[in-house]
């Protein structure tokens, strides 16, 4: 009895030592900063107020009452999220279906398609900015060849925004492709064969057999990417900096600008915490809805 209790103790100790380093780093560099941020968000924490007076929810009220925040930033963030996830999902589904067969040069195609995933987002953003440069970019050169007027892409809100979403879709399509392709390759063969013997066409097989079987994977892809797309920063910052005239600002850019451009740490941290709360709710709802959809479709 005594011996078994000692072994149990050793087991517990082993478990704790295994997670202790990761836990310590998580606390020191993620949890503590979030608490510091929460503290700052309840105070008047700018360069001009060394007192750091407690102001309650005033900062939150100011952010929520800011027309740029609720009128531009939040809609932009949500549109970006939906556009980027939908685009990547559709493209990834299509590509994975195409790659799920043997053909000459498949390896080469796979290298080409995987490439965007490895490219630093900042560099991708620079490449796109260069391609869409109004004077010397290849896109306008192409338009010129076709006899069309050049378009100043980054001067208008919606063309800038479309370019940013497109860049994100380009960066993340390979990720969707890899995950969906892995799922496709592990699907059972029998339902497909049975459907084909019953005379179903390729589209019907895809629509009625493949897609429902893929739902669990698609759900994971959607939730993970939606959460990541919500916090996008690098490509928006590099391509538009939130411009023209703050019209393409997303949530992370807004919080960053409050803290480091306008030097209002209090408003910046308040905005960042509001964003965190929103993504928790959106992520939770998305997860629940999609789990429900998956359950129902089974």
């Amino acid at each position: 009895m005594k011996g078994s209790r000692r072994r149990f103790g050793a087991r517990e100790r082993f478990m704790l030592v295994l997670i202790l380093p990761a836990f310590a780093i998580l606390v020191a560099f993620q949890i503590v900063p979030i608490l510091i941020g929460a503290n700052a968000s309840f105070r008047s924490w700018s360069l001009f107020d060394p007192q750091k007076t407690f102001v309650g929810l005033a900062n939150y009220r100011r952010i929520l009452a800011d027309p740029i925040f609720y009128g531009t930033v939040l809609p932009n963030t949500l549109v970006f999220m939906v556009g980027s996830v939908t685009g990547g999902l559709v493209a990834g589904l299509g590509l994975a279906t195409m790659l799920n067969r043997k053909f000459p040069g498949a390896r080469l195609v796979r290298v080409g398609i995987l490439l965007p995933l490895m490219v630093p987002p900042v560099v991708a953003a620079i490449m796109i900015t260069w391609m869409f440069n109004d004077q010397f970019g290849v896109v306008n050169a192409l338009l010129g060849t076709l006899g069309l007027e050049p378009v100043p892409w980054l001067v208008y809100r919606w063309t800038s925004f479309a370019i940013v979403v497109m860049t994100d879709v380009w960066l993340w399509t390979p990720w969707f492709t890899v995950l969906i392709l892995a799922a496709l390759q592990s699907l059972p063969l029998e339902p497909h064969e049975a459907a084909r013997i019953d005379g179903a066409g390729p589209w019907q097989v895809f629509r009625n057999i493949t897609l429902p079987l893929l739902r669990p994977v698609l759900m994971v892809c959607i939730v993970v990417r939606a959460i990541d797309a919500f916090r996008v920063f690098d490509i928006v910052w590099t391509i538009t900096k939130g411009g023209p005239a703050r019209s393409t600002e997303v949530f992370s850019i807004y919080a960053y600008k409050q803290a480091f451009v306008y030097l209002n740490f209090d408003l910046g941290t308040a905005a960042s915490l509001i964003g965190a709360a929103i993504i928790m709710v959106v992520g939770g709802v998305l997860y629940k809805t999609l789990s429900y959809v998956v359950e129902v479709s089974r």
Partner: peptide
């Protein structure tokens, strides 16, 4: 949790 939430503090 978005990166910006903990990177500002």
């Amino acid at each position: 949790i978005p990166y910006i939430t903990w990177v500002i503090p």
